[in-house]
Simulated scan of single mutants.
Amino acid sequence: MERKPRTRRRSIVDIFDLVNSSQQEDFRIVTKSGNTTVKLANNPSSKKFFYPNIFISVVELESAWICLIFLTCFLLSWFTFALLYFVVAEANGDFVPTDGETIPCVEDVHNFLEMFQFSMETQTTIGYGTRYVTDECPTAIILVVIQSILGVLILTAITGVILFKFQSPKRRAHTVLFSKFACVYEEDDVYFIEIQILNMQRSQLIDPKVAALCIMNREDGSGKCRLDMEFNPCHESSRLFFRPKVFRHLIDKSSPFWDFNRKDFLKGDYEIIVVVEGVDEFTDSFVHARTSYLPSEVKWSRHFKQMTAARKGNIFKLNFNDFTRTKRSYDMTDDSASVASRRSSVEKNDDNEIQMSEFVNGDTYQYQ
C-alpha cells in the first residue's frame, strides 16, 4: 500500500513569508482610521514646542507614557520630601536614644521607611494617625505646607490630563463610521460624488458638518496641489445624526473632477480627504473624525442604498448590512461631467429649436 507523503506543518517562517508577500496598502496622506502619515523633516528642536505648551504635549502622548510620567512625579515627590523630613529630624536628634523628654519633629518615626510613609500620607491627605509634625520644628511645618500645595497641583494636573485624554475628539471618532467606498453617479445629467456616514453610538452628534479636500498632481507636473471640496447632505439637513447620512459633492466647473471620466476616476492619482465635525449631545464635547478615499475606493455609476428600518414594538432597528450596499445607475455613460453637461446643453437647444419650428408651422402638438 502506497503511503501518502506527509504534509509539513506550518511554522512561524511561513507566517512571515505570508506577511511579506502580501500586497502593501497604497500610500495615502490620511489613513482610513484618520491618522496622518505626514512627518516633519529637519524640524527645529522639539524642546521649543514641548515646554511652552507642556500640558497639550503631555495629553498627546500615549496612555502608557502618561501613567509613567505621573507615577514618577508622585514617587519622586514622596521620596524628595521624605528625604527632607529625614534630614530635619536627624538634625533635631530624633533618632538618638533619649530619656523621652525631647519632643521629636515628627512623632512616631524611627527610620527612613516610616518617614517615606509619613510623606505619602501628607501629600495624599490620608493622615494623620500616630505620625504627625510637632510644633518643635518650624522647618518641618513649612515643608508640610509646601508639600500639601505641591500635591494639590500634581493631582489637579493629572485629573485635567486624564479628563482631556478621555474627552479627546479622536476617541469619539472611533464611533463614527465612514463608508468604505465613495460612489460617482449621475442624476438628471448632473454628476455627484457621494459618501455615507453612520454614528455608531447612541449619543447623537448635534449639527454634524462635513468638509473635504482633494490632493492630486498638478497638470504641469510641478507636484501635488490641494483643492477644496464641498459635501452637502443628500436629503433635508438635520441637526441630529439619528440614522446614516449620505453626503454628496456636486461635480461642476469649480470641482477638481469636472474633466474626469470613468478611467480618470479609477486610474487617477488623487486622494479625497473627508472630515466630519460635530458636538456630542451627552458630554457636549467636540467630535472630529476623518478618513480618505483613493482611486481604488471609488465606484463608478453606483450610489448607496437606503438602510431598511424594521419596527419592533417601540424600537426601530436598522439593518447594518445595508450600510455597505450600493446599486447601479444603468443610464450613466463613461464620459466626464463636462462632456455630459455639453451634451445635455446641445440636446436642450435641439429640443427648443424643434419646438419653435413646430410652433411656427402651426402644429398643435403640446410638449410637457
Rank of each mutant, 00 (worst) to 15 (best):
Leu198Phe: 15
Val19Asn: 08
Met216His: 15
Leu240Asp: 11
Gly223Cys: 04
Glu353Ala: 15
Gln204Arg: 03
Pro104Gln: 06
Phe359Asp: 11
Gln167Phe: 12
Asp269Ile: 12
Met1Phe: 01
Ala82Ser: 13
Thr37Cys: 06
Val298Pro: 07
Lys4Leu: 13
Ser168Leu: 04
Thr139Ala: 14
Phe86Thr: 13
Ser57Cys: 13
Thr98Leu: 06
Gln167Arg: 05
Trp65Asp: 15
Ala157Arg: 03
Arg248Gly: 01
Asn35Gly: 07
Ala82Asp: 01
Pro256Arg: 04
Thr122Lys: 01
Pro138Ala: 00
Ser338Leu: 04
Gln24Lys: 14
Ala157Lys: 02
His288Thr: 06
Gln196Gly: 08
Pro244Met: 06
Pro97Ala: 12
Val13His: 12
Leu205Gln: 03
Val109Phe: 02
Phe112Tyr: 15
Asp189Tyr: 10
Gly313Gln: 03
Thr7Leu: 10
Gly151Asp: 05
Ala173Gly: 09
Glu230Ser: 14
Phe74Lys: 00
Gly313Ser: 05
Ser336Arg: 11
Gln201Trp: 11
Phe74Val: 10
Ser344Thr: 10
Val190Glu: 13
Ile126Asn: 07
Met120Asp: 04
Ser345Trp: 11
Asp363Val: 07
Gly100Arg: 10
Val19Tyr: 13
Leu250Gly: 00
Ala289Pro: 08
Ala310Ile: 13
Ser285Phe: 02
Pro52Phe: 02
Arg3Ile: 13
Thr291Asp: 02
Ser77Val: 14
Val87Asn: 06
Ala310Phe: 11
Val190Asp: 06
Asn199Phe: 08
Ser77Tyr: 05
Arg171Trp: 04
Asp259Leu: 09
Gln366Cys: 03
Asp284Val: 05
Asp334Gly: 14
Asp350Asn: 10
Pro295Arg: 04
Arg3Leu: 14
Ser345Pro: 00
Glu236Tyr: 12
Asn92Leu: 07
Cys105Leu: 01
Ala310Lys: 09
Lys209Asn: 11
Arg311Glu: 08
Arg9Gly: 14
Glu187Ala: 03
Asn361Leu: 13
Leu150Glu: 09
Leu40Asn: 02
Arg10Asp: 08
Thr156Ala: 15
His288Glu: 07
Lys312Phe: 12
Leu76Asn: 10
Thr125Ala: 15
Val279Glu: 05
Ser57Gln: 08
Arg3Gln: 13
Leu75Pro: 02
Ile197Ser: 08
Thr122Asp: 00
